[in-house]
Design a protein around this nucleic acid. Structure first.
Lengths: 223, 223
DNA sequence: TAAAAAAGATAGCTTTACTATCACATGAGA
DNA sequence: TCTCATGTGATAGTAAAGCTATCTTTTTTA
């Protein structure tokens, strides 16, 4: 598949929209590489500036701080998943098949080379698994939530919830099940890689483990 | 209930065992207050030293850095939950009732005034919900995992997994379901408080929501 | 009561997380 | 062509965070 899409991340996430310049797009690209390599805690704007061949001052003209930059990356990912979900569900009418497609999307790496920008999908996936909860597990959550910065995540959650309700209209917790599926897909992927004792994954079938576990869970819960 | 227990947190988490001195115990107590108040990102050893009426140098003699201190607090909590679980399950033989007791423990605040040390249970609960994943979502996870620092969490997870298997010996993912229950109880409590759109909680029944959701989920999954 | 261990006091160092300023390049509009 | 807004580079500087080191004093305990 080949297509060109751009996602409009909420304005209050950035100071200058990185998608409007080559330097900006490169900053995001290099950020993904660097956060993947160093982990978010060891990632700094100085290192990013060096990696991207620009200056710290320029980076600060795009983002207030590294948390906002992470929020940008994660929002972009959520938009992208939302888009891919629409794309993948196009020709599916059976709600059960739709749920399978959802789980498949959440538990597998993104296809490389797709999407409007050529960010490294493998790295992006790892970042989302290991770092995404850090965008909302902060003291400022209520304040920044008022600026709608979590809208992409909420929209995706609502979309999956509506599929859940389509499959079983009587199920009373579609949104909580939806957010649980998303979060659990991250946790179980992370655990099976780094803390396997917290899972039932065997190292051989590790890649397919999370989707099998979540599939089993979802369809038992929904009957 | 009234009892006195001490938990031996893994030695490689601290430099000097804080439970062996008044200053050490006070450091933990003040840390819990301060991390609750500021959030982990804004918490520093300098602020802790001031709050505890001691010096930064002394704090560094107990813990290598603030991450280790958080790990200490979270480990202590996991030990404590493990202990409470044994205590609460003493007179229960029915596996279904045991599972209910597990869910109840994970989704409600700890009883105040119990436990060996009088840490603020309300604050401790909030910290675990908002900060506990930060102890393992780090680049150094594999390295520190080799020093068994996550053993309390793994032990608790294994204990709950064994109850799951007792309830339904045929269920193929007891450990993953166990870690999912633990993590989901944190997420859903956090979401229902700060990002309620990601849940089906109404503000009135917020407190009981998480336990109802997880109960429903677990018993449907296990049949 | 002497030695050992813990804590206090203080200093200092490097890095992080910014803010500020000025000069230079570029491109769009008058 | 001028010019003026916008973006970037280069550089400097500041406050706080995240340590390490040293020396003295107090407290334990052997």
């Amino acid at each position: 598949m080949e297509y060109k899409v751009t996602f409009q991340v909420n304005e209050s996430v950035y100071l200058r929209n990185p998608e409007t310049s080559e330097i900006g797009k490169n900053l995001i690209k290099q950020s993904i590489d660097l956060v993947y390599e160093l982990g978010f805690e060891h990632f700094t704007f100085k290192k990013l500036a060096t990696q991207a061949g620009t200056t710290e001052a320029t980076v600060y003209r795009y983002f207030e701080n590294k948390h906002r930059l992470l929020l940008y990356i994660i929002s972009w990912y959520w938009f992208y998943i939302d888009f891919l979900l629409d794309y993948n569900l196009q020709n599916i009418t059976n709600p059960g098949k739709k749920l399978e497609a959802v789980i498949d999307l959440l538990t597998h790496e993104l296809p490389e080379g797709s999407g409007g920008l050529d960010y490294n999908k493998k790295y992006l996936n790892s970042i989302v698994i290991a770092e995404s909860s850090k965008v909302y597990l902060i003291k400022e959550v209520t304040e920044i939530n008022q600026h709608q910065v979590f809208k992409p995540y909420k929209d995706l959650c609502a979309k999956i919830a509506s599929i859940i309700s389509e499959y079983n209209p009587a199920y009373p917790f579609p949104k909580s099940l939806s957010s649980t599926i998303i979060e659990t897909s991250h946790h179980q992927q992370y655990f099976s890689e780094f803390l396997p004792r917290l899972t039932d994954a065997d190292q051989a079938g590790k890649d397919e483990f999370t989707s099998r576990f979540i599939s089993s869970l979802v369809f038992k819960v929904l009957g």
